[in-house]
Design a binder for these strands. Structure first.
Lengths: 347, 347
DNA sequence: TTGAAAGCGCTAACAA
DNA sequence: TTGTTAGCGCTTTCAA
């Protein structure tokens, strides 16, 4: 009943001229006062603010944008909204953008049709001051398209010329994960990762793959055919990939999954196959998902929401004209109970 | 290099006048042709479309909004973005809104400060054609404030006059959950729910609480002091609530958690206490979270993304001037392995 | 079916 | 420090 936002419904929305009249100044002065420009005397500003309050005035974003050319909006593009990782990143990014007074324009591109449409039409054109790309696989042409927006582009996990990138050292982190398994005495170590044909600029799965291969090579371990499985970064995909791995003539004794959700799917497949983790097979994930603790999943922790926050900050800095440098945030190995030495150490 | 969206960077963005000139018509005709109005002859429309394509013309949303008064934007307001439920609902809603050509303006209100600011300033004013509220606790005054936006308001799980609501029968579903425990022979059944002081219009936890109480009363079972615990709808909260329940002089033999995330937290607390589920204590959740299957959680399944889709559709229908009715989607009991008869049936 | 012209409600030069 | 005056780039009467 008496919420500040509640208003009489009878009157039309006041415009800047009404405020100017009531404050006894010009519309230009109202505009300046309301935007906090320095060239307004304090008494004048006070009168304007009072008038605006009395009339319950709100600036029309459309008019303001048309006149100024600034949208005060950021487009946030992500492949999925329903997965843990993206929820966390989005959460962090939204927090920062909102606090800076920017509107957050959300675009999800869950399938090829959505992506083709997005990069074909570029619906963000003329409506944002910057774009934040959240771990979206993009190829060269798509990066070009983003540049065609003519606004700064920031990202979480998407490097590229002209794109500022916040991320982690995926390669080193993957290496740490695999080396952990190696140190436990495992020799047959498989990978569950993203698809084999990811676009160039989506380096995350490729970097983790590279880290896996490096660690295996360092340990002098072979990567048998079929040991690099595709889990599509989903729980269901991880389960299917693990099932495939278990069906191999010589199944692995340990698995490195590139995400916790895939690792959890793997856990499910292992249980379904009547096997036990870590007794029969070890599993290490990646992310430190909120529920990883519940299933005692050993994993690589990364600061997820923080990457969203940093990426948003970096983007805003670039919009403000600053130079920004790419950042890599730290990761760490979290030991829980899904990894242990193999039943009988080989070699 | 040859993506449709990639453009020469040299030329300025073409405006409607340029298109008009090239097509040999007036700007009014260009506007009509581009918006698909019927009052344009086919040859003319074709010429306009060709000219627009040649010039790579995109309508300026700011100018269009200013002139037409329509924003083609929907504000989506949710308390959290990082929780599973909201990710799913948002995913469904975004899909529908995007397909209908609306911009999705995202607002997260994770704490009291954000809420107070949102309802105090109403930053959505003048910038959206409709608002979608996703399971956000709102009191009377806040509902009034939303109405003050003077645009249709739709919701998932937020009933209220003037708000179209898509949801489930929370009361019946909760009753089903508790009755399942009763039927197994449990007598000491506790609840882990939302806070005790939820605003009136956030009926979800209240309805589930009512369903719990009804089922208990129907079974002639008492609800001892302390059996209605607050888990804040989070994993950590559920764990803490369960720990509190276990510390009771006469702890329950079964627990109904109002969300799967809280149920999973409860599972964690049970394990931490050295107890086993379901042998020592049964747990039933609510949602059918993607990972519920992994932990074998018995739960009440609800169509989450679908509620987001339906709510978006209903909102769009109202914006188009249609009358819409509230909908309740079906739920179902999903039996897994966290519920069983109590060790020794009482009574 | 098309065009002319008047706004939509601001911001930004420029002047004072 | 403040005011005057052009626009910003569309949509929408109203007329033809």
């Amino acid at each position: 009943m008496s919420v500040p936002g509640a208003r009489g419904t009878g009157s039309e929305a006041a415009d800047i001229a009404a405020v100017a009249r009531r404050a006894g100044v010009s519309t230009a002065t109202v505009s300046r006062a309301l935007r906090g420009l320095p060239s307004v005397s304090e008494p004048t500003r006070a009168r304007v603010l009072a008038a605006a309050r009395d009339l319950d005035y709100v600036t029309s974003p459309a008019a303001s944008r048309l006149a100024s050319g600034q949208t005060r909006s950021i487009g946030v593009v992500a492949p999925y909204l329903g997965r843990w990782f993206f929820g966390q990143v989005l959460s962090g990014a939204e927090e920062v953008l909102r606090a800076a007074g920017y509107d957050v324009l959300l675009y999800a591109l869950p399938d090829d049709a959505a992506r083709a449409d997005f990069f074909g039409r570029l619906p963000l054109r003329r409506r944002v001051d910057g774009v934040l790309v959240l771990t979206l696989p993009v190829d060269e042409a798509e990066v070009d398209a983003l540049r065609g927006l003519n606004v700064p582009v920031g990202s979480v996990g998407v490097p590229g010329s002209g794109i500022s990138c916040i991320g982690i050292d995926d390669r080193a982190a993957a290496r740490t994960a695999v080396t952990h398994l190696v140190n436990l005495g495992h020799a047959g170590i498989a990978l569950i990762g993203g698809g084999p044909s990811e676009p160039i600029h989506f380096t995350v799965p490729n970097d983790r793959l590279a880290g896996y291969r490096t660690a295996m090579a360092d340990a002098g371990l072979p990567v048998p055919t079929g040991y690099e499985a595709d889990g599509a970064f989903t729980y269901a995909g991880g389960e299917a990939a693990m099932a495939g791995l278990l069906a191999l003539p010589d199944p692995p004794t340990a698995v490195f999954a590139q995400s916790d959700e895939m690792a959890m799917g793997a856990l499910r497949a292992i249980r379904r196959a009547g096997l036990r983790c870590p007794e029969d097979i070890s599993v290490i994930g990646f992310d430190d998902h909120e529920l990883a603790e519940l299933v005692e999943l050993t994993t690589i922790a990364q600061p997820v929401a923080e990457q969203g926050r940093r990426a948003a900050q970096a983007l805003l800095a670039r919009i403000a004209g600053a130079e920004v440098v790419d950042q890599q945030l730290p990761t760490r190995l979290v030991l829980r109970s899904t990894t242990s030495p193999p039943r009988r150490a080989r070699r």
